[in-house]
Every structure is written in structure tokens, then in C-alpha cells.
């Protein structure tokens, strides 16, 4: 089924930046991911949605090996994920992640949050890293807060800092795990605006989110997960207007009537 859809929307093997094959993951006895096959092309914007506990976070956390998996393979930009620490760090240096709860480092000022990875992982000089960080902060609209500490910012500002921090290492891939769901409603759009800007610049993005407006506007593909499986994937138009599976229909009904 999913292979069929892959062909239908013209997915080719040549320029896949993420290749997930036969991925299976258990937490103890609990089968959290069941035989996931998923390819992401360079520059593609993927949105993943699905009910709570369906394995969305688990899936994207496997991509940068925050979660170990038992079966299957994940290849990121030509490097296959194994237990090898060097390879894991190599992949993590190309893949950035934005978390639901921001996870900024509270003991470091905003600017130091941003320059940490460039300096220590990418061996940039303090000067270079700082300049780039200030540019990014400017881009997400909080340049004047550079010397503050995370707890002095609002949730929306913190999440924008987190996005800037993720961008600071010039990643090839950005993973977002429900970046707006811990935010008050009035702050959601300021974060989404930053993400939309980002999407237009051609960086590869995999976003777990229930912001359907965002999905319609920028996604190349929307993926619906349930009970640890990919149930349906499609272009946003078809995904929202002609959902094929019953589960997706009920899911869409639920979140749209909220």
C-alpha cells in the first residue's frame, strides 16, 4: 500500500536524504513502530500527524538515534545508523531537532545556547559562531534578547530561539516534534511563521504537528500514523480533501471540529 503511494507521488530513490527500511521498535514488549518504510527526498517538507501514542515522536527520534531501534535500517545522507558513536555524532551534526518543550539550556544565555554546538561540535571560532548566531536571532526576530537567559523569554520566543539554535549548525535536515503544542494559542503563529519561512528556503523538514494550516501551506507530503504504523500518506490536497482510510477520516473529523 505505502509503496504504491510512493510511486504514485513520484518518489525516486536517487535523492533520498533519509531512507527508512523495515523499521521496528519495541519498548520492552510494546511494539511501538511496526515495519515502517519511509523515504524523504532532499528539500522535501514532510508533516507527520496522528493520534497520541501512535509513535510519531518515536519515529523521528529514531532518525537522530535518540531512540534505539531493534530491526530495520535508517540511512541519513548516505550514512547508515549503527551503534558506532562516531557515525551517530556525524549524523547528529547534520540533523537538528526542535522539541515540544524547547529544551533550551537554562544556565546559558540565549547567544551561548546558539553558539554551543557550532563551537564544540563544528569547531567554529567563537567569533564566527557569534556572528552567525546573531544573524539567526535577527531572522527569528529576537536579536535584542541575545544576552538574556531562556527563562526570561516567553514560550513563543523560547521556541524561536530553539529553532535558531537548531539552524546554527547549518543542518541539512530539521526535525520538529510538535513545536507548537506547548505554546499558548497567541504564540503559535509567531513560531509557525518562522517555520514557513524556513520551509521556503529548501531545507529538508520532517515535522510532527497537528497544525493543519501549516501542512496545507508548505508540506510536500502529509503522513498519517496510527498504532505504530504509517496508515496513509499523500499530497496535502488529497490528504485533507480525499482521505482514503477510515481511520484518517475519523482523525481529521476530530481535529477539525475541535
Amino acid at each position: 500500500m505505502s509503496e504504491l503511494i510512493n510511486k504514485e507521488i513520484g518518489e525516486k530513490d536517487c535523492c533520498n536524504i533519509i531512507e527508512i527500511k523495515g523499521l521496528n521498535k519495541w519498548y520492552g514488549d510494546f511494539h511501538a513502530l511496526k515495519n515502517i518504510d519511509l523515504n524523504v527526498k532532499e528539500g522535501e517538507i514532510i508533516v507527520i500527524c496522528g493520534p497520541s501514542g501512535s509513535g510519531k515522536s518515536t519515529l523521528i527520534r529514531c532518525v537522530n538515534f535518540l531512540e534505539k531501534f531493534q530491526e530495520g535500517s535508517i540511512t541519513v545522507d548516505g550514512t547508515e545508523l549503527t551503534d558506532d558513536v562516531k557515525k551517530i555524532r556525524q549524523i547528529r551534526s547534520e540533523v537538528s531537532m526542535v522539541f515540544q518543550h524547547f529544551n533550551l539550556f537554562p544556565h546559558l544565555s540565549i547567544i551561548n545556547n546558539l553558539t554551543l554546538a557550532p563551537i564544540w561540535v563544528h569547531n567554529e571560532t567563537r567569533q564566527e559562531a557569534r556572528e552567525k548566531a546573531l544573524k539567526l536571532l535577527d531572522r527569528v526576530g529576537i536579536k535584542d534578547q541575545a544576552e538574556k537567559y531562556p527563562n526570561q523569554l516567553s514560550g513563543g520566543q523560547q521556541q524561536r530561539v530553539a529553532i535558531a539554535r537548531a539552524l546554527c549548525t547549518s543542518p541539512k535536515i530539521m526535525l520538529f516534534d510538535e513545536p507548537t503544542s506547548a505554546l499558548d494559542p497567541e504564540m503559535i503563529s509567531e513560531v509557525l511563521d518562522v517555520m514557513i519561512e524556513l520551509a521556503k528556503e529548501g531545507i529538508t523538514m520532517v515535522c510532527v504537528t497537528h497544525e493543519m494550516g501549516f501542512a496545507k501551506k508548505v508540506a510536500d507530503r502529509v503522513i498519517f500514523m496510527d498504532v505504530g504504523q504509517v496508515i496513509e500518506q499523500n499530497t496535502p490536497d488529497k490528504f485533507f480533501d480525499n482521505p482514503e482510510s477510515e481511520r484518517l477520516q475519523t482523525f481529521l473529523d476530530q481535529i477539525l471540529t475541535q
Binding site: 537522530n64 531537532m97 522539541f99 529544551n103 539550556f105 554551543l116 554546538a117 561540535v121 549548525t169
Partner: peptide
């Protein structure tokens, strides 16, 4: 919090 470890890991720190 666990998130601090995860953020540090995800950034590629050793």
C-alpha cells in the same frame, strides 16, 4: 530534566 540530555545529544555533543 531528560530534555536537557536529549537536547545535548541531538546537538551532537560528545
Amino acid at each position: 530534566p531528560k530534555g536537557q540530555y536529549e537536547a545535548a545529544d541531538a546537538a551532537g555533543l560528545s
